[in-house]
Design a protein around this nucleic acid. Structure first.
Length: 311
DNA sequence: AATAATACCAACCGCTTTCTT
DNA sequence: AAAGAAAGCGGTTGGTATTAT
């Protein structure tokens, strides 16, 4: 399989001797001229590979083999919401962490959360009664594609990540409503899902009539089931972290945008039924209670040019 | 104890951006 | 200004370790 055209190029795990050579090179020349390492015959590695090795493993002051602290996790969540998947940028705020570290951390976290949601939603039998529902069985195979209304702020043409950080979904200001797939919102505010190709396809049908084409997640179709969801304490901890971030970001955005009610009431407002106060602390599943069941009745098609997934 | 599932990590690949000539 | 090289970045893959069944 190894192409012969790249003869002499070593790949795979680095040996200690190679590291030593690389370190010596950096001592002499500094962290640059990576290509010269090979051209001088010091190592049979590409400059690219050398640079990566240095950046990710050999650089001084790296926190190798050290798990992300809670504080680091918070920073990542916040900055990811702010910048999107700009791992290098995020990593600059985390001393001793590389973009690869952040990326890997985020990726595992996404998987973990996706699995949690998946198992949770899989346990829920979707109602067949919703008029807009399509028979698409993505629930059990993919991260659920939940939509919530997204209320854009004044600026247009933002990237998805920017839009996410900019949008404060304040119910009541309905003039700029557009739909955003669950992953988009969760990505920036709660869970960090990146819409995968399948979801993107589902989320952005050709005619942009989102609601006609998107599967609705069971939460919206069946108001009860979340009471059946059970999260382990670890999971609760994990989700609470996101949720705290969500609420604090929301508060901050409300402040910045000078809008009144936060999207998420802190406590006791999870139930949408009027007069029904649930005296529960915030739980991840109560997020979904905040989506009115009839919100889909107000959906408008997106204008053709606006693709929220655009970079 | 064996196996499967999951988490974590290191490295590669392809694309984009920046620098140099 | 243009072209090529180098560096940077994000996505993906594959291997190993750990945990659950």
């Amino acid at each position: 399989m190894e192409g012969k055209r790249e003869e002499g190029i070593r790949k795979g795990p680095w040996k200690a001797e190679e590291d030593e050579v690389l370190l010596n090179h950096v001592k002499k020349c500094g962290p640059r001229d990576w290509s010269s390492i090979r051209s001088k015959g010091l190592l049979q590695r590409t400059g690219k590979s050398c640079r990566l090795r240095w950046v990710n493993k050999l650089r001084p002051n790296l926190k190798n083999g050290c798990k992300f602290s809670l504080e680091e996790e918070r920073v990542v969540i916040e900055l990811q919401a702010q910048f999107g998947n700009k791992w290098a940028k995020i990593a600059t705020h985390l001393p001793g962490r590389t973009d690869n570290d952040v990326k890997n951390f985020w990726s595992s976290r996404q998987k973990r959360l996706a699995r949690i949601l998946q198992t949770s939603t899989a346990a829920i039998t979707p109602s067949k009664s919703h008029k807009n529902r399509r028979e698409i069985s993505v629930y059990h195979d993919e991260v659920p594609t939940l939509e919530i209304p997204k209320f854009s702020c004044s600026s247009e043409g933002e990237s998805s990540s920017q839009a996410a950080s900019c949008s404060s979904p304040c119910i009541g200001n309905s003039d700029a409503i557009q739909m955003v797939p669950l992953p988009d919102l969760l990505d920036s505010k709660l869970l960090g899902f990146e819409a995968n190709p399948v979801q993107q396809e589902l989320a952005l049908p050709e005619n942009n009539l989102w609601i006609e084409s998107q599967p609705l997640i069971p939460f919206l179709e069946n108001p009860q089931p979340q009471t059946d969801l059970e999260f382990s304490s670890d999971t609760q901890e994990l989700l609470k972290l996101d949720f705290d971030m969500f609420t604090s970001l929301d508060a901050e955005l409300s402040k910045q945008l000078d809008v009144e009610p936060p999207f998420l009431e802190p406590v006791g407002s999870c139930g949408n039924v009027e007069g029904e106060k649930i005296d529960n602390p915030i739980t991840p599943d109560c997020v979904f209670d905040d989506f009115p069941a009839d919100m889909f009745d107000q959906i408008e098609p997106l204008p053709n040019g606006s693709n929220p997934s655009d970079d």
